[in-house]
Measured scan of single mutants.
Amino acid sequence: MSGNGNAAATAEENSPKMRVIRVGTRKSQLARIQTDSVVATLKASYPGLQFEIIAMSTTGDKILDTALSKIGEKSLFTKELEHALEKNEVDLVVHSLKDLPTVLPPGFTIGAICKRENPHDAVVFHPKFVGKTLETLPEKSVVGTSSLRRAAQLQRKFPHLEFRSIRGNLNTRLRKLDEQQEFSAIILATAGLQRMGWHNRVGQILHPEECMYAVGQGALGVEVRAKDQDILDLVGVLHDPETLLRCIAERAFLRHLEGGCSVPVAVHTAMKDGQLYLTGGVWSLDGSDSIQETMQATIHVPAQHEDGPEDDPQLVGITARNIPRGPQLAAQNLGISLANLLLSKGAKNILDVARQLNDAH
């Protein structure tokens, strides 16, 4: 009898209710805020589980004197976190989706994509230029951005401005803007500013005609071990179906173009009346040469937790077992079709030249 009692006690200790789920994140304040929001949602869904947040620095956090596009290494903000995932030191990792490459290392998958916040870019102005827009900034004003995508589009749109690289986390960039006289304004992701509670610093939100956004911008991705079915089931509740389908289309477009950090590629997606609209573009580094096109596809946005595919093969690095396969494939095909259209119009040449120029500098 006593033996059975011990077995029952052991089973209770090993039951999922007692389990601590370890969540990996970057150390920056924004990353911690984003991770806290994901953990809060998981806690609400699984009140019996405990969650421990483990923060670590990544290569991208450490190399702050070089433009991201020049470092010449993929997975700048993800490699150390993936290493911890691989060694079973954490069970899942919360990322900004735009930091996750469209091809993940073997053994990993994006197990959830959370509801997207505003994906557009924002302009934050130096205190002396508050009330201005990019259009009304004085001639030769210097605007800071760490992104080739932003610089290429904005140089084309605002030729009277000069664009220079600015690195560091959000706090560091804002301090550089406010305390030094080098920059009249800087460009940042609206979602990051909003998550930090800095709505009052948003001086201008850039519309798609001015600057399309990065693939996955404004959404959070939760990376897990691809074979860890328990954790895949656990994080599945975080999937937002519309965000998922938009981001599958965007990531398929980028992957098929073979774009990345070192080339200016941008997108804009919208879901309306059962249609998914995808606009994508590529630019030369100075913005003088560009190709942009829009395509659409009829896609039914499923309700969360309709029964999805059981075999769960990944699409552009994403596993969404609780979302039907048909809409996911339709979104992926839309991204591939748009990429093929741009490639047929000469996108590869623009991107190759951009890559060579970026590598040469």
Rank of each mutant, 00 (worst) to 15 (best):
37 S>W: 13
157 K>Q: 13
24 G>P: 00
199 H>S: 13
166 I>F: 13
260 G>W: 04
164 R>S: 11
95 H>L: 09
170 L>P: 01
223 E>P: 03
309 P>E: 03
307 D>R: 04
66 T>R: 09
56 M>Y: 03
175 R>E: 06
288 S>L: 13
37 S>V: 08
220 L>C: 09
347 A>H: 05
315 L>E: 00
79 K>C: 11
101 P>N: 07
193 L>Y: 00
309 P>Y: 02
172 T>Q: 02
355 R>Y: 08
193 L>R: 02
82 E>T: 07
145 T>G: 07
349 N>M: 11
277 Y>P: 02
248 I>V: 07
307 D>I: 03
111 G>E: 03
310 E>S: 05
64 L>M: 09
306 E>W: 12
44 A>P: 07
205 I>T: 10
24 G>H: 02
239 H>C: 09
121 D>V: 02
301 V>A: 11
58 T>G: 01
330 A>S: 07
348 K>T: 07
100 L>I: 14
25 T>M: 07
79 K>G: 12
105 P>D: 05
240 D>L: 02
288 S>G: 13
219 A>V: 13
200 N>L: 05
56 M>H: 13
102 T>N: 11
328 Q>S: 14
59 T>H: 10
148 L>H: 04
341 L>A: 01
180 Q>G: 10
141 S>K: 08
224 V>M: 15
148 L>N: 00
136 T>I: 14
109 T>W: 07
292 Q>A: 08
268 H>V: 15
291 I>P: 09
69 S>C: 13
212 M>R: 03
240 D>Y: 13
316 V>R: 13
110 I>F: 06
261 C>R: 02
34 Q>A: 08
268 H>Y: 14
151 A>W: 11
80 E>F: 02
20 V>G: 07
151 A>R: 11
287 G>S: 08
36 D>H: 13
112 A>K: 01
267 V>D: 00
212 M>E: 06
72 G>T: 08
131 G>K: 08
113 I>Y: 03
108 F>D: 01
143 V>E: 04
145 T>A: 14
305 H>F: 01
133 T>R: 14
32 R>K: 08
134 L>T: 06
118 N>K: 09
49 L>H: 11
44 A>F: 12
322 N>Q: 10
312 D>F: 07
315 L>I: 01
42 L>P: 02
132 K>E: 12
360 A>M: 02
244 L>R: 03
212 M>I: 15
269 T>E: 01
21 I>W: 10
34 Q>P: 01
41 T>A: 10
231 I>G: 06
232 L>Y: 05
315 L>T: 03
286 D>L: 08
301 V>K: 03
105 P>Q: 11
37 S>K: 13
280 G>M: 01
268 H>S: 04
286 D>I: 15
142 V>Y: 10
177 L>M: 13
63 I>Y: 05
67 A>F: 00
49 L>Q: 12
334 L>K: 02
80 E>W: 07
206 L>A: 03
218 G>Y: 01
153 Q>R: 03
351 L>M: 14
305 H>L: 11
171 N>H: 12
265 V>I: 13
27 K>P: 11
357 L>K: 10
302 P>Q: 05
104 L>F: 09
306 E>Q: 12
327 P>C: 02
176 K>Q: 13
336 I>M: 05
344 S>D: 15
110 I>L: 10
50 Q>E: 15
77 F>G: 02
24 G>F: 01
316 V>G: 09
176 K>F: 13
355 R>G: 15
249 A>E: 02
274 G>L: 09
220 L>A: 14
113 I>N: 01
